[in-house]
């Protein structure tokens, strides 16, 4: 028995049905619409002053805050999103379909509306504000608020990505593992999670990117205090008024991060 490749070979490029040629024109316009502004931004970069612009105190504070909060938000997404995806993909509780739609709401909600909603939930005069205040906890306009806003908008990315991976993987490996004597926790740890690791990884990368780019909800719920709540996108927006070169430099940084993310998740199942 010689090892036989068990995965089907890639199909040869189809020479079959062709597209009407005019489709190329709007497709090219669409590509330009995406690429032209990015190119314009890169052309605006003052390369000589770039190190100085990026290392100003305000820039460094914003970058550090952004990385810290995005990392925290991503961790929170994993902590909460993995169980959510498991429940959505592997159980048949009543009302699950409705829950799935609601969980996806932040994907389509304007972020500023999300920020307003967070304010009314956790703000000083919000739904839970009174109880939180009694416990000595104040969230709105703190770094914690930034993390919460970022988690709010980034969570669906992780849940959707992981739930899709779980559904694609199916249950048969888990069933075999259970019959072999593995309890639910062992099955989850040794079979389910390793099998969906690529889906989880792309979910993590996507939610980190979404958290890093968060603007509207953060501004509404957390404000814009340097070093506390003023993240990179907020800094870009502010600098645009006072120091356009610094804004462009910071924007370039975000473009680079976005490009890295796109490369990292390329080839993964589409959302």
């Amino acid at each position: 028995m010689s090892p036989v490749p068990r995965r089907a070979a890639r199909r040869p490029a189809s020479a079959g049905a062709e597209l009407p040629r005019w489709v190329l024109a709007p497709a090219a316009v669409g590509a330009l619409l995406v690429l032209l502004p990015l190119a314009a931004l890169v052309l605006q970069v003052d390369w000589a002053d770039l190190p100085a612009l990026l290392s100003s105190e305000a820039s460094r504070a914003a970058l550090a805050l952004s990385l810290r909060t995005s990392a925290a938000a991503t961790a929170l997404c994993v902590l909460l999103g993995v169980p959510m995806a498991l429940v959505l993909a592997r159980t048949s509780l009543p009302g699950l379909r409705v829950l799935r739609s609601l969980v996806l709401l932040p994907l389509v909600l304007p972020p500023v509306v999300g920020g307003l909603a967070l304010l009314h939930a956790f703000g000083r005069r919000g739904l839970l504000g009174g109880q939180l205040e009694a416990l000595g906890v104040s969230i709105a306009f703190t770094t914690a608020a930034v993390v919460l806003a970022q988690t709010f908008v980034a969570l669906p990315f992780l849940v959707v990505s992981l739930e899709g991976a779980l559904r694609t993987a199916g249950r048969r490996h888990e069933e075999v593992a259970a019959v072999l004597g593995a309890g639910p926790w062992t099955v989850l740890r040794r079979v389910t999670l390793p099998v969906v690791l690529p889906g989880l990884a792309s979910g993590v990368v996507l939610s980190f990117a979404r958290a890093l780019g968060e603007f509207g909800a953060t501004l509404t719920f957390a404000g814009s205090l340097q070093g506390t709540t003023r993240t990179l996108p907020l800094e870009v927006y502010l600098q645009r008024e006072t120091d356009p070169d610094a804004a462009v430099a910071l924007a370039l940084l975000l473009v680079v991060v976005a490009a890295v993310v796109v490369v990292a998740v390329r080839g993964r199942p589409a959302l």
């Binding site: 048969r172 490996h173 069933e175 075999v176 593992a177 259970a178 019959v179 072999l180 004597g181 593995a182 309890g183 639910p184 062992t186 099955v187 040794r190 079979v191 390793p194 099998v195 690791l197």
Partner: peptide, 19 residues
């Protein structure tokens, strides 16, 4: 539950754990 039954299943698909 299945993991306390001490049976084992061999299906048409080997269903080996790929990792």
């Amino acid at each position: 539950p299945p993991h306390r039954r001490r049976t084992a299943l061999l299906a048409q698909d080997p269903l080996l754990f790929g990792h």
